[in-house]
Design a protein around this nucleic acid. Structure first.
Lengths: 232, 232
DNA sequence: CGGCGTGTTGATCGGTTTCAAGGAAGGTGG
DNA sequence: CCACCTTCCTTGAAACCGATCAACACGCCG
């Protein structure tokens, strides 16, 4: 259940009911574009399952993924200036969608929702800044490890919502929601460098892989160490 | 006058009056630490003049500036989870400060203020993501040019609040609020690389400098071109 | 004058990109 | 079921950009 993680976690049951009445469920397949980024979106959504990527592109074709949205995340910025951001399904997706006008009217009637939105946006901002550190100051080796850790953390909280990745004993195994290309676009690297780093972790016994997309984290502490300070 | 740019731009005169009654003016000198980042701040502020830097640091000493706050910006995140961010005066500063409890009570009574805060935070998030593109995908040459452009834009809007940097004819001259070290920390580069790029722009006739801190932008369009796609 | 902080310049090194080729997985049609 | 194709990923060699190391210049202040 993802309600407690989503914006609606701040609401009472009957308020959630009102939201549900104006919501509609939607399924999308990987690669689908939710918001093309060139016009004002007229709807919002909560991610129920799957992963969404936020992409900045430049005329010459360079792309940078500037955010990933996991289940529980809110898509769209009610009342904000439009931002040129392409929002795309990284995996198959389940969404809980709201049309612009009805949702905004619910927000008007429920201040807690707006506050929840503000808190969530502060968290997003913090995550973005954390990632700016990764982009600006970490080596390729540290970057790729950092990304795997984020994915592992997400996978762990999805399976076991209470305690995240805390308990050390459990085996961590999950499917990467990103292709090598997407990993590179998130990390500010090339796919070749990503590939080489993955190989290096494998030979160090930190991870193992199945079919390139399924990751076993064999040495979580070791991976953390690498993500923080490279091979030293 | 910076009121229209700040959060209080959304308020009526007497509401601004109420804010003013709970505010106190503060001056700080460059280098002063506003929030050390290790404990919950118990106050907020609006930047009246000067530039504030937001810094992420790691145990091994690596630092990344993850945001700059210019006049009109709001400091602090009412109701957010604490984030480990060091907030520091890049230049001498004038602030309009609010204690936590009184400000939050004004926010409770004035929803427009909260909405304004949300909109502002969406804008911050957008700026952070824009900068993630710079950090992840731009070359050193493009990075430094991008930074100079941001500074120029800010300087222009400060002098002439109405129209930003639009008019092409006017001479743009301003003092850099950042040292070479800080520029490097914002760009994910070393000071040497920043220095070399500046030299290169000078020899290309894009900029001129006085005493290393005062910049004349001689060819704004050229600088924009370089910031977007390097020397091609 | 000498010392210190800040910025510049030069030489060299190394990590990452680039370029190029090969391999594995999955889908399609015969 | 297999040949073929396409896409994604891996691997290798070479080139290059930015980092590192080191020395020097400049302004400032005691």
């Amino acid at each position: 259940m993802i309600r407690p993680k989503a914006v609606c976690g701040a609401l009472s049951d009957d308020e959630v009911g009102r939201l549900q009445r104006i919501s509609h469920h939607r399924r999308l397949t990987a690669g689908a574009v939710l918001f093309p980024g060139d016009r004002e979106p007229d709807w919002f959504a909560i991610v129920m399952s799957g992963v969404v990527k936020l992409v900045k592109t430049q005329a010459d074709g360079r792309q940078q993924i500037v955010g990933l949205q996991f289940p529980g995340a809110f898509l769209g910025q009610p009342g904000a200036n439009p931002s040129s951001l392409i929002v795309e399904a990284a995996t198959d997706l389940e969404l809980c969608c709201f049309s612009k006008a009805p949702f905004e009217s619910v927000v008007r009637d429920h201040r807690e929702l707006e506050q929840s939105l503000l808190r969530r946006t502060f968290d997003e901002l913090d995550a973005a800044r954390q990632w700016m550190f990764v982009l600006g100051r970490k080596t390729a080796e540290e970057k790729v490890a950092s990304l795997i850790l984020i994915m592992a953390e997400n996978a762990a909280t999805l399976e076991c919502p209470t305690d995240g990745i805390a308990q050390p004993a459990r085996m961590i195994k999950f499917e990467l929601p990103l292709s090598r290309t997407e990993m590179a676009e998130y990390l500010g690297l090339t796919i070749e460098t990503v590939s080489r780093q993955m190989k290096s972790y494998k030979s160090q016994g930190l991870i193992a892989t199945e079919r390139t997309r399924v990751i076993h984290v064999l040495d979580l502490a070791g991976l953390r160490r690498v993500a923080e300070m490279g091979k030293d």
